[in-house]
Design a protein around this nucleic acid. Structure first.
Lengths: 327, 327
DNA sequence: ATGAAAGCGCTAACAG
DNA sequence: CTGTTAGCGCTTTCAT
């Protein structure tokens, strides 16, 4: 590992000049530049980011906090973040929290220890206090999730409206008995989507039985099956189901298929997120598309702006109803 | 941001003592320790990893190179890597290459620039020369993929044998006309799995028509559909299909369903990888399970060993046939 | 346009 | 057990 010293020596210039050549080649004279170039070639020199980081007190690393990498909802968001980050000279540290506060704490320390310059959090705001604490001291933005009373910048969609659109679609194609598979209402999006669901029903004069809103423990496939199983056993069986995530909807699909019923003839199903797999199921899934790539790329841009001291406002992006075979 | 200097000053000790307290508390006298502790508390001090990294010429960062984060095959592997890495004080830099050499080059530079201590590559060995070059100078292990004539340590499974088992299973349940959906044979695993397929057929005296081995461009769902479409149009239609990846198999499933045929009655399908979604399809997919978590965790351990100068041998792990509804 | 020199925050001899 | 000191590799004034 050649160092800048050795290059300087070999090129018979000072380290300052080599540094200048590295960061701003134009300001060094042509003849000198050539000598430096040659020395770098000869020694196969690569500047140490470690030294630069220390000197500049920055790491050019962004922490991306996600509950779980296996949830395909996040993959497109991550793509958006990564592309934007790299474009601006940052790299990302992808950190899974399993929505576990102690795991989260490890990653929060990474920024306290200056190993990272900022955080994009996609974790549901379970531990508001902790998050706010960090956000006060360090650059942090929330993506997809946000804290309604918080001061933290975020990029998200209008969950209430999206859910409203989803249910409206079911109503429009003739359904009157519409159930919902919701996730834990400790999550803001779950509460908001439920409101949208209720508003759509109310507006059309349809009634919802409490039993038709099934709340799952998590967002896994099996929870979707279980939810659907429960819904199928109701005295009055719904003819349509709105699930707050595609994976839950796919679980529901599976359960319906397993019972020998048909989608959409017997029961229509609509999901949420438009993950890749929603197009691979039998039948393909109607769903609400979130602009995931854009969410990622905008949150990265927001964070980088914050890091460089600029203020940025939160953003609410548009969603889109994607009609496929399941409705 | 308090520094170690300020802590030392406040605690009326030298910076060396504070450093000792941080790294090896036992060797500092109790009374001193208490003073240092207090100063750290008071100043809300957090050691800067930047300073430590520079001093120790290490970053405690591991680069993990994957073709694409959206391929669920990698998620469990990443979990294994991450758990092991964190346990040993490392963090991972998850880097998507899209199997694009120029993108790969960016990440290779990260290690040249000492921003990372080692690399775990899951990219297919397309650019052998480049990879070998890096492996000579820096700690690198390959996971899942490997270079048959290379000198790079790896952890993988026996692809030939796994494919052999898959096809043997199809033969055992009575199939005689068995097709294969393979991916590009520039990948070693594709060549190996094809060998296993051929060996199983040969051993049972079954014949394979070249037309029954369909080679796809990539590992996407749509390629699986296309492959199956082609296979269904053969003069002699196969009664079973072995796909080298679950996603391809799921695409095949979709195409079969769309044609009105039934799995497994009309055509049996077996996949490879046992990704999460293979259990969510209709019908559920028979597949070959790779010990993905273990592959990840072992490759991380191998890499960390390499970084600390220990030699490690390559490892070949066992696979497992998981029989479900599709066969 | 270039060089000398200070210093980012930390660790690790070495000496006592 | 503790302090002094050098230095990891780089950037950035401040002179010239």
């Amino acid at each position: 590992m050649a160092t800048i010293q050795e290059v300087a020596q070999k090129a018979k210039v000072s380290v300052a000049t080599v540094s200048r050549y590295l960061n701003n080649p134009d300001i060094v004279a042509k003849a000198t530049r050539l000598r430096v170039e040659e020395a770098i070639q000869d020694l196969n020199y690569e500047p140490s980011i470690l030294g630069r980081n220390l000197r500049k007190s920055e790491s050019k690393l962004l922490i991306v906090l996600i509950p779980s990498i296996s949830n395909p909802f996040y993959t497109e968001i991550i793509n958006g973040i990564e592309d934007t980050a790299i474009e601006q000279g940052y790299n990302i540290l992808l950190c899974q929290t399993d929505s576990n506060p102690s795991r989260e704490a490890i990653y929060f320390n990474l920024i306290r220890n200056q190993l990272a310059d900022g955080i994009i959090s996609m974790d549901p705001t379970v531990n508001r206090k902790n998050l706010t604490e960090i956000a006060k001291e360090y650059p942090l933005v929330q993506c997809s999730e946000y804290d309604e009373e918080g001061i933290i910048s975020y990029v998200t969609i209008n969950n209430e409206l999206a859910a409203y659109h989803a249910v409206k679609h079911l109503i429009k194609i003739g359904h009157k008995k519409i159930a919902m598979i919701n996730s834990n209402e400790k999550f803001l999006y779950a509460r908001e989507r439920k409101q949208g669901y209720e508003r759509a029903l109310k507006e059309s004069g349809l009634s919802s039985y409490p039993d038709w809103v099934y709340t799952t423990d998590n967002l896994e496939f099996d929870s979707g099956r279980l939810a659907m199983k429960n819904l199928l056993n109701q005295d009055i069986r719904p003819t349509a189901v709105f699930a707050v995530s595609d994976i839950l909807a796919i679980g529901a699909l599976k359960e319906i298929n397993a019972t020998g019923l048909h989608v959409p003839e017997d029961i229509a199903v609509i999901g949420f997120d438009k993950i890749n797999f929603s197009n691979m199921t039998y039948p393909t899934l109607t769903t609400i598309a979130q602009p995931m790539y854009q969410m990622g790329s905008m949150s990265a841009q927001m964070l980088i702006n914050k890091i460089s001291g600029k203020r940025t406002d939160s953003i609410i992006l548009d969603h889109e109803l994607v009609i496929r075979e399941s409705t």
